[in-house]
C-alpha cells in the first residue's frame, strides 16, 4: 500500500486544529499549553515569525511543537500548537528547555502548516546557549545554514525566525 498523499492545510486550518482560535464553539482546543504548571524544567519563552519568499509574514501559519522533557526523554514528551497572530504573523509560546538525549543536543521538533504549504514542513530549533557541537543532525547541515536552526536570546525570550524560501532559508528535513 502507498501512503495517502498530503494536501495543504489551507487558510482555515484553525477550524479543525485550533477551533477556539477560529471562533468555532463546541470543540475545545488541544495543545494550547505545552507544559503544565508542575512540569519540571527551566521555563523559557520562544517567539518568532515565519516569512515567505517575498519576506512577508505568514499570518495563517500554525506551528506544532514536539520535544523531549527536561531529562531528554520523549516518553511521554511535550506537545503543543501555536497559531501565528492573524494581524502580524508573530507567534510566541512558553515551554521548558528540553534536556539532551541519546547524543542529541537539546532541540524542539517543529511542524509547520499553512496555506500554500502542500506537505507539512519539518524543522528543528536548537539553542545558541547550549553545546550543539556533537549533535548528529546539525552535523549533517552545511555549516553556512546551521544558524537557521538556532534560536538566540533576545529580550528575555529566544527568537527564532523561520524563512520558507530564498536567502537565509530555514533548513527543512526529510526524516
Amino acid at each position: 500500500m502507498k501512503e495517502t498523499p498530503s494536501q495543504t492545510a489551507g487558510p482555515f486550518l484553525h477550524i479543525g486544529l485550533a477551533p477556539q482560535v477560529a471562533g468555532v464553539e463546541g470543540v475545545r482546543d488541544l495543545g494550547t499549553q505545552i507544559i503544565a504548571p508542575d512540569t519540571p524544567g527551566e521555563r523559557i519563552r520562544i517567539d518568532g515569525i515565519i516569512r515567505d519568499g517575498a519576506g512577508d509574514p505568514v499570518k495563517d501559519a500554525m506551528i506544532e511543537v514536539w520535544q523531549a522533557d527536561a531529562s531528554g526523554s520523549h516518553d511521554p514528551g511535550l506537545w503543543g500548537r501555536i497559531s501565528a497572530d492573524f494581524a502580524t504573523g508573530e507567534w510566541s509560546f512558553e515551554t521548558i528547555k528540553p534536556g539532551a538525549g541519546q547524543g542529541a543536543a537539546p532541540h524542539l521538533t517543529l511542524y509547520i502548516l499553512a496555506r500554500g504549504i502542500n506537505i507539512g514542513l519539518h524543522t528543528r530549533l536548537y539553542f545558541a546557549d547550549e553545546d550543539n557541537a556533537a549533535d548528529p543532525v546539525l552535523a549533517r547541515v552545511p555549516e553556512p545554514r546551521r544558524a537557521t536552526l538556532i534560536a538566540r536570546e533576545k529580550g528575555g525570550a529566544y527568537r527564532f525566525e523561520i524563512v520558507l524560501q530564498g536567502a537565509d532559508e530555514t533548513v527543512f528535513f526529510d526524516a
Binding site: D52, I117, V137, V141, Q165, T170, D174
Partner: peptide, 14 residues
C-alpha cells in the same frame, strides 16, 4: 500561494 511558500533548497535527508 505555493510560489512563495515552498522551500527552494531540497529537503535535508536525516
Amino acid at each position: 500561494t505555493s510560489i512563495t511558500r515552498s522551500p527552494s533548497q531540497p529537503l535535508l535527508r536525516i
